[in-house]
Design a protein around this nucleic acid. Sequence first.
DNA 1: CGTGACACCTGGCAGC
DNA 2: TGCTGCCAGGTGTCAC
Length: 273
Amino acid sequence: MPELPEVETVVSLLKTLVVHEVIESVEIYWNNIIGEPNVTTFRNNIEQQVITDVTRRGKYIIFALSNGHLVSHLRMEGKYYVYDEKVEKDKHTHVIFNFKSGKEMHYHDTRKFGKMYLYPKNEPLAILSKLGYEPWDQDLSADALLDLAKRRSISIKAFLLDQSVIAGIGNIYVNEILFTTKIHPAQPVNTLSKKQFDAIIKATASILSAAIESGGTTIRSYTSSLGVTGLFQQQLNVHNRQNEACNVCGSDIEKIVVAQRGTYLCPICQSIQ
DNA sequence: CGTGACACCTGGCAGC
DNA sequence: TGCTGCCAGGTGTCAC
Ligand SMILES: [Zn+2]
């Protein structure tokens, strides 16, 4: 389910639900969800720790613990649910955190793509080390992007999906950002102007902020994490709108493939240069 | 190093 | 109703 706005929505909710909870035990039903360390060490080391905060970096959820950090990536379908009392797991529940209070936090993931990483106190969160700018970072500038782009031959879409450039943009929002800035997704990134990068930075911040305000985007899945249904899908201009009318010029929205991903665009508003 | 193809998984849905 | 193939909000790896 998640790109940055959906993760941000989940993080705010988790913060109200699990901060101060003590992890008494952890049940793991699909070992590959645990990225680091091995499953036994993960389980042994996390037990008895207190959750002290929940934050976000890019698309990662960071649980600050009394003696380290749990970093969790939901990938395509990961969801968290928190219950006040014991609830039976279902077919796609892969990790259960049992809290001392009797509450439970379930990690649910239909496709099993999600990953969790546990780091001891004072150790760097290695999985986050290669992430690029947060979209609202003051150091994110057109000059910085221009510099990163000049050695690259990929499309602007692939560039914006590269988490080492800007962290948090995924397939829905990159389609929307490129529509707003009137740039063709397949345009080679080393042909963009400083002005275009400025527009991309502004559009990224405003689209992601608006999406967070709406609780994110919900498509395909009936509810997302914690039963939240985001509403930003009502404001999408191109994503998932093949053959519908462009909100600017009325042309049919097209679907093509760029960077191996489904890509929606208005062929009139977004011409390749 | 940068790039594209592919692997990792399951379920929903369009088209026979 | 079945079956088949394609598609899905992501990223790690591997061979040029
Ligand atoms: Zn248009």
